[in-house]
Amino acid sequence: MKIGVLNIQGDVSEHFQMIMHLHKKYNVDPVNVKTIENLHGLSGLIIPGGESTVIYKILKKSGMYEKIYEMAVSGMPVMGTCAGAILISRDTGDNRVNGMNLIDITIKRNAYGRQINSFIQSINIEDIGNFNAVFIRAPGIESPGNSMIMATVNGSPVIVRENNILAMTFHPELTGDNRIHEYFVSMIDN
């Protein structure tokens, strides 16, 4: 199974490594997705953290934005972390970045403030368990809509799922703990 990691900008190699580590157990291979052609034949796609404005701009320019939307609507699992969650949301409230509306959440960019307010917190994720979540200039999920809340921080959802789409406002690729990636792979399997 090929799992794409969108390689436009941000911490791409960290996600790539996480999938490589799952290769033996699940027979998954990470694929660098830089062009629209690279999307062909993928079983799942990860949209990493980075700057949502930058990733959005290049996704639109290359036509990948529409292509990813099409593939996800026809069932391909997509996981968005931080900037990735913003890009797949229903509403960002910010015309600099329009979400693809793949998951029914409204999200606010930089909801916790600036870098000085970045933090690490242990959270308890449904079906996964305790997890050290790293929040870096993180967005906040203001309304989960029809999505299922898997964990919260101070009452706000930080990881949500709706069918084949998984979104989180923190960075599971930074701590070496690959259980969330494993969970995503199991979404593809099913």
């Binding site: 390689n7 436009i8 900008q9 941000g10 911490d11 791409v12 190699s13 960290e14 953290g49 980075g50 700057e51 930058v54 931080c82 900037a83 870098q115 970045s118 933090f119 690490i120 790293v134 870096i136 200039r137 960075h171 930074l174 701590t175």
Partner: peptide, 13 residues
């Protein structure tokens, strides 16, 4: 981790 993590988010930019 937070400091180096911030830097990682700028990669490719």
């Amino acid at each position: 981790l937070l400091k180096r993590g911030f830097a990682k988010m700028t990669k490719g930019g």
